[in-house]
Every structure is written in C-alpha cells, then in structure tokens.
Write a protein that binds this DNA or RNA. Structure first.
Lengths: 325, 325
DNA sequence: GACGAGGGATGCGACCAGCGAATGTCTAGC
DNA sequence: GCTAGACATTCGCTGGTCGCATCCCTCGTC
C-alpha cells in the first residue's frame, strides 16, 4: 500500500473512477437492503452485527461518503443514494454471477467454441466420427470446421484463427511453434484395379514392385506428396494423371489407368472394383497424424474435450481400417 | 471468518453464486489484459509484479479455478476463459464507475428528485418563487409537485410518496413523526369590500369587531379552518357563503357579500377593489408555515437544497408581504 | 416514569490477507 | 553457454477486518 500513499487518503476514494469495493460489501449491502436491518442481514450471512455495520460503513466511504442507509431506532432504511445504488449493486452481482456461470460452463466444456481444421482424407471417417461423438457429449459447444492442407492449417493455427488442426507429418514446417498430439499412425495402401497382377499378392507389397507402374497422383511432381517415399526407394514414379480428388482417383484406378497411393484414413470409402494392397512399412513408413495446437497456449476445456474425442475416434478408425483388410 | 469455516474451502469459491472478488482484482485483470504483461500492468498500477501475479491468481481461483491467462515466456495472453471474462469485468467496472458518478451527482444536488407538496396559498408566491430559484441553481433535479391540505400532505409524506411538504400548523395531527423546518410566520388579514366601514381603520383590527359580519369561508363550520380563532374569541362566525377558491372568494368579498380571512401568503394576489386589513395578532396568532419531512429519514442533498431555497423564498415573500401593507 | 428489549456504533485484541523485496525457474536470443 | 526478461514463490511485515464486549439510543411496557 505504500506506493499508493498520497493518492487516496484513508480507505478507497475512487482513484481513477473505479472505487475499491469488495463484492462482499455488495452482497452485504443487498442483504441489508432486503431485510432493513444490520442484525438480521448479519444473521443471514453468518456474521455479527458489528461486521455488517462496518462493511456498510466501508462501502459508504468507498462510494464517496454519503450514507446509503438511514439508521433508525428500529433497523435501517435506504436513503435516496442507497436506493440509487441498489440497481448498480444488483448489476454488479448479476455480472459476476453470470461470469461465474459462463466460466463454469466453459470449464465443463458445456460452452465456448472449438475452431478446428483438418486435411481432406481425415474428413473421410476420422473427423465425422469425432464430430458425431462430440456433438452428443457437448451439445453446448459451437464448432467451426475448415478444410485445408497441412501447411495452410498450421498457418491459420499460428494466426489464431484455429484452436486445433488435424495434420500429418510434414517436412520443412517449423513445428517448434506447435504442440503435437499424436492421433494415429496410418499405413499406406496402394490402390490397384481389381484384375491387377498384384491383386492376389499375400502380405505387404514392396514399393519397388511398382517402379514401372503408372501413377495417379494429386501432383505432377512426387516431392512433398505421399509418393515422396518412392524417391527414397530409388525410382521416380511416372505420374500418368494428375487427379486431386480421392473419388476421381478411384475412377482412374478402376479404369486401369494407373495405381495410386492411399492413406489408411481413406480406406473406408473405397469402391468394390478397386483393390487396396498394404505396403510394406519398411519402404513407406507410417504417416503420423497429429492434432496440432499452438505451443504454450492452453487448450480450453472444450478444445481439450474435442481432442480427447479425436483420440478415441482415431483408435476406432485405425482399428476398423486394419480389421477391414 | 470463523463462522464461514466449512462453507468455502480456502479462498472464495462462489458461495451462493457471487464470488468474493475485489474490484482491485478486476482493475488489475483488465490492466493485464490490456498490456499482456504482469510486469507492465504492475508498473502502470504502481505495484510490483509479484502483487499483480497474486492478484490474478486470486481472481482465477475466486472465479472457479480456471486460468484466465496463459503464462508465456514473453508475457501473458488471455485464455478463452479470460476473453470471456473481459466483458463481465468491464461491465462490473462500468457499473461501479457509473454508480460513483451518479451518487456524486446526487450528493451535489445535480441529480435525483424532489417530491414535494404544498397547500394552496403557498402556491401563490412562496412555491413559485422557490421553484424558479431552484430550477436555476439545480437544473438536473427532477421536481414533482402536488397540492393538498396539510393533513393529506402529511399522510403522503409518511407513506413515502413525498420528500417534503409545505404545511401550516394544524392541531391534532401527530407531529412526532415529522421534522418541522420553520419557514415563516404568516399574520392573518381580513378581506373587506373597498367601501367597508372598517376599511379606513388605522392599525390592526380586533377580531371581535367582526363578530356580526357575514363570512365567506371554505367550509361551513369554522372548526379546523382559519376561522377557528373566532371561536376562541367567543363568537361563532356566520358563514354566509362557502367558497373554496381564493379567486372566487375575492369576488364574493368585492361584491359585498361578506368578509373573509386571508393568510399573508395570499396577499400578493389581491384585487384592487378588495381591501386587506391586518388582524391583531393577539386575537389571531400568526400561523406558522413549515416544511415537514419524515423524522429520522435523512434529506437527500437535492431535498436539502430545495429546503434551503424554500427558506430564502420565505424570507423574501414574508418581507414583501409585510412591506406591501 | 423507570426499565428491559432491540438495534446500531465503537474500542479492543487477534488473525489473516496481501503488500514489497528477494529469489527461483523458464525461455528466447546472442 | 550465457544473459536478459518475465512469471512464480517464499519470507517478513503491515494493516484491514473479524468477533466480543460495551455503549448509546429509542421504543414499548409495566
């Protein structure tokens, strides 16, 4: 209090407009106003009459000095100033009450919002599954979703437009700025037409056996895409058709125009005339999928809950995928 | 605090919805939110960083335990809970700020209201004069006025519908419930037609000389009215005409239909063909005029100021009245 | 008319909240 | 690796606020 010396005289004259009052005083004031008696109000609050008397006294001087109550022989009664203050006191109490309630709702993930993004194949099963479970469990949380590639999502995350981003491992991105929550490791599959020579193969396929195949890929150049792995296997895949969308890709594969790499998350939506072959993980390491958040920024309970649901969904999806073939 | 033991654990969990929060914490919170730093906020508020840290910490636990800020290596940043609370904190600060301002206005009689009543003859000069002066001096104060007889006004006062009542001495009313602020003593006059035998009398008139006169009065029976004095003089005045309104009374007097008692406050509005004769104060004691307020109930500053103006007006009116005749 | 009851104000002693100063810990940047 | 900056924590101390006891005032009653 020493640094305040000289600014306010004794006890709380309004310094820069905001009087120093405790909500305790406010509650006491309202209780006294309701009962018209210090003693009765004190009994209701579990305090002695003397405490109430001094609380009110303190409030009066904090508010500028004017009395809020007339002290009558039989209890007290609001002055005009007191009547005026009742409204403000109730507003203050109401604000704080409401604040506590909303913060509690936030804490229990019964309110607030989750803004998240995901890359497209995650939307095939993982995200819808998680969303359904989350909606059921936390109906009060507003959810906004967006789709995009990993770099773009991370960018949006850093800019504060997203709370969470479902991303896959990406070389070159500065991951120090993010906290990664591991969701699942997805093996890769190769999609071949139903009658393809390799279709009957037993067990994982070595990537090298597809060195001469024609590829359907989202990009003409393999660098930075899933086909990256082929480079490390010593061959440069020939991209016959550039097709971005997974549904379209399947059509090309089914028509026998080439083969395509498929991340495990997309296996749920494969058409019957396309066969998926698991790739040997020695050639193509599992691609890890993470939920990324900004490092150092605490997850709101709603976001935390959503992350939990995402984890569950990941387990269920990964299990289902491996069971399906 | 001992009686609170067992209700709240350590430090301010919301008891019945209202958290125990000091406005100091709120101000510190807003300052920290504005600057994004405990240290900077502390400097602005004249406190040390440790104090700010604990203030925020206390606020966080009072609000339910969730952190309001993310502690980053380079300052702090609002969490979602913190962002949510900003609005409420500002609402609280705004309410209290506004309360202080309005209470200050009230205290300086720059706001609030004055509800007063007055008996009719006071409205002839005293009340308008006071109103004009008060309006000029305190333009922010709302004034409501009503008219009535003294008993009715006191009743309204006790019921809390009035702050102040301009009344005259009345027998029989329980005056212990009121505080009387003396305004003036008004002598009584008798109004006679211009050609009346007594019109030329020098000096005060004895009431007994009017024992045979016919009277114009507001009531058929003299008891409780100004004519009460006649009873004490040993004669019962004959009321020829019952006329309530002073303007009408004058007409009857001017027409020679009788004489009428006139309180000094009404002398300002006398017509030229009516002569006013002062009555001997030995027969008819001066009637005191008071401003009455409820005993024990403090006068709001606006009401107090109005009372002061009434006193000034009383001096001016009384002086003018005595000068005029 | 004296007296007890009820209610608010106040002095006293004790306690704890909250201050400053110093120190610890962590991270970013050089 | 080292320094600087920022928040957390500890320690000692001041002071605000509580309960208790008491005083003062008014009202209702015998």
């Amino acid at each position: 209090m020493s640094s305040m010396a000289g600014m306010s005289s004794t006890h709380g004259g309004a310094r820069d407009g905001l009087p120093e009052v405790s909500t305790v005083w406010v509650r006491v004031f309202l209780e006294v106003a309701r009962h018209g008696s210090f003693t009765v109000a004190g009994r209701h609050l579990g305090w002695t009459q003397s405490a109430v008397s001094r609380q009110v006294s303190a409030l009066e001087s904090a508010l500028g000095g004017g009395p809020l109550f007339d002290r009558l022989p039989r209890g007290v009664r609001l002055t005009e100033a007191g009547r005026t203050f009742v409204g403000y006191a109730e507003a203050v109490a109401e604000s704080l009450h409401e604040a506590v309630r909303e913060l509690a709702a936030l804490r229990e993930a019964a309110g607030g919002q989750v803004r998240f993004g995901a890359f497209s194949t995650a939307d095939a099963a993982l995200v819808p599954c998680a969303l359904a479970a989350f909606r059921a469990r936390h109906p009060g949380v507003r959810i906004s979703r967006e789709e995009g590639l990993t770099p773009r999502l991370l960018e949006r995350l850093a800019a504060g437009h997203l709370d969470l981003a479902v991303v896959s491992t990406t070389q070159g991105a500065p991951m120090e700025a993010y906290t990664l929550h591991h969701l699942l490791d997805e093996p890769l599959y190769v999609a071949v037409p139903a009658g393809h020579p390799l279709a009957g193969a037993d067990g994982p396929v070595r990537l090298a056996r597809l060195a001469d195949a024609e590829w359907i890929s989202g990009s003409a150049r393999p660098e930075g895409t899933l086909l990256d792995a082929a480079l490390r296997q010593g061959f440069r895949p020939r991209v016959a058709h550039v097709v971005a969308e997974w549904t379209a890709k399947q059509g090309y594969v089914a028509a026998g125009l080439g083969v395509a790499l498929v991340p495990a998350l997309a296996v749920a939506s494969v058409r019957p005339d396309v066969t998926l072959l698991p790739l040997d993980t020695a050639d193509v390491p599992c691609r890890a999928v993470y939920a990324a958040s900004v490092r150092g920024r605490s997850l709101s309970p709603a976001v935390g809950a959503f992350l939990g649901v995402l984890r569950e969904a990941a387990v269920s999806v990964a299990g289902g995928a491996s069971r399906s073939r």
